[in-house]
């Protein structure tokens, strides 16, 4: 069993948990994920790591309940435990293997959307610890859904934007990026975007036009997460890649997002669609035909 040392609701329908998992904490790096399973009958849920403490042997996860198993997950309290918690899975972010001197020369922008803010955090923090200060945009539907703002402020130059303008800037992350580049004189050598598939799609469209290499983190359907089932395959350029062993981070300009969104809908229940509509409605530009944003 993997004990939950701290369970906290970060925002409406966004939950954070610090879990005791020494083997994961010892080896994980920013960009990697874990798989959690609440009990015997639950699904295996892949979640990107939000933070870790090697000495305490703990890992932090942040998630948004969407199906039966994550609904059950959100009910877990401090002191409860996961039956299974395995990782770290996937490859670390490419930043980790890049010489720090090289990173220092780069102007790096992170774009985080919704619950995707969580997996961006360890990367920004890691850069900060290595003397690199990046810019980061956090996008949320509304003020109450902005998460981890204080933590981000300590480790980067932060821009917050809300779709409804209820907090800081108004508009979607792409509008913020457009302003930073075209009105505020910023230029970037690298962008890392993590958030809803549809957000990553439109960020990539824009960064491609701007000529900024962009990395995205894919969170497709998975079962085992260890390279056995092949459910997580994504088209990257004209190659089939498995997100669990080849990813989860890929060159965003090579991803076929429409297909990835379509595959993500494979097991989506009516209940899940309703949740996703709530999550993505404001940031949805229409077109994927599955998340319900254009209904």
């Amino acid at each position: 069993m993997y004990k939950i040392l701290e369970s906290e609701k970060l925002a409406d329908n966004i939950y954070s948990m610090i879990v005791e998992a020494p083997r994961v904490a010892k080896h994980c790096e920013p960009g990697q994920f874990i798989i959690a399973k609440v009990d015997e009958v639950s699904e295996r849920i892949p979640l990107t790591i939000c933070d870790y403490d090697r000495e305490a042997g703990t890992v932090r996860i942040v998630f948004m309940p969407i199906g039966a198993s994550t609904m059950k997950m959100k009910l877990l309290k401090t002191g409860d435990a996961f039956q299974d918690f395995v990782g770290p899975l996937g490859r670390p972010s490419d930043l980790i293997g890049t010489p720090v001197e090289e990173l220092k020369k780069k102007s790096i922008l992170f774009i985080a959307g919704g619950v995707g803010t969580a997996p961006v955090y360890p990367q920004v923090k890691w850069l900060h610890e290595h003397g690199v200060t990046a810019d980061a945009i956090i996008g949320a539907k509304t003020k109450d859904l902005v998460i981890l703002e204080e933590q981000f402020k300590e480790v980067c130059n932060l821009y917050v934007t809300t779709d409804d303008g209820s907090y800081m800037r108004k508009g979607m992350v792409t509008a913020c990026l457009d302003d930073l580049v075209h009105k505020e004189g910023k230029s970037y050598d690298l962008c890392i975007a993590i958030g809803p598939m549809i957000m990553m799609k439109f960020v990539c469209k824009m960064t491609k036009e701007l000529g900024i290499p962009t990395v995205v983190s894919m969170n497709p359907i998975m079962v085992d997460g260890t390279g056995m089932c092949g459910a997580c395959r994504v088209m990257v350029g004209d190659e089939v890649k498995f997100a669990c062993v080849d990813g989860p981070e890929f060159d965003g300009h090579l991803i076929d997002f429409d297909q990835a969104m379509q595959r993500q809908a494979m097991y989506r229940t009516e209940e899940g669609r309703a949740k996703l509509k709530q999550e993505e409605a404001e940031t949805h530009h229409g077109g994927c035909g599955h998340c319900g944003g254009d209904e």
């Binding site: 009958v41 639950s42 295996r44 039966a68 085992d224 459910a231 097991y267």
Partner: peptide, 30 residues
């Protein structure tokens, strides 16, 4: 890559390991 194409490993893992054929288990199967 169409929806509805999967590996036998995925299909069997969902059914056997995750017991998707039993109603009380959460994992779905096509």
């Amino acid at each position: 890559t169409a929806n509805g194409v999967m590996s036998a490993n995925e299909f069997l893992t969902r059914n056997n390991l995750m017991k998707a054929y039993l109603d009380e288990y959460d994992t779905p199967i096509r």
